[in-house]
Computed example of a mutant assay.
Amino acid sequence: MSTAGKHGRLRTRGGTRERVVEATLGLFNERGPDRVTTAEIARTVGINEGNLYYHFRTKESLVLALFARFEADAETFAVRALGGGSGEARTYEDLLSDWFRLVWAYRFLFRDLLALAGTMPALATPFRKMSARMRGVVEALLRRMIEEHIVNVPKDDIEPLLANVWIVSTYWAVYLNLQKGIDEMDAGHLDWGLNQVSHLFKPFLIPTGSADVFPLSTRREPDST
Rank of each mutant, 00 (worst) to 15 (best):
S2Y: 04
L10C: 03
L10W: 00
G15K: 13
R17P: 05
V21W: 01
F28T: 07
R31L: 08
G32D: 08
G32T: 12
D34A: 15
R43M: 05
R43D: 14
T44H: 11
I47L: 07
N48D: 12
E49N: 10
G50K: 08
N51M: 08
E60P: 01
L64Y: 03
D73T: 01
T76S: 09
A81H: 04
L82M: 14
L82C: 11
L82I: 05
A89V: 14
A105L: 03
Y106H: 12
Y106E: 02
D112T: 08
L114C: 10
A115Q: 15
G118V: 13
T119G: 14
T119Y: 01
T119N: 12
R133L: 09
M134K: 02
E139Q: 09
A140C: 02
L142P: 04
R143K: 15
R144G: 14
M145N: 09
E148L: 10
H149W: 00
H149R: 15
I150T: 13
N152E: 10
N152C: 05
K155H: 07
D156W: 00
D156G: 03
E159G: 00
E159V: 09
I167N: 14
W172G: 07
A173W: 08
V174A: 11
L176F: 04
N177Y: 06
G181F: 04
D183M: 03
D183T: 11
E184Q: 11
M185A: 13
A187L: 03
G188H: 06
G188S: 12
D191Q: 07
L200T: 07
S210E: 05
S217H: 15
E221V: 12
P222Q: 05
D223L: 08
T225G: 07
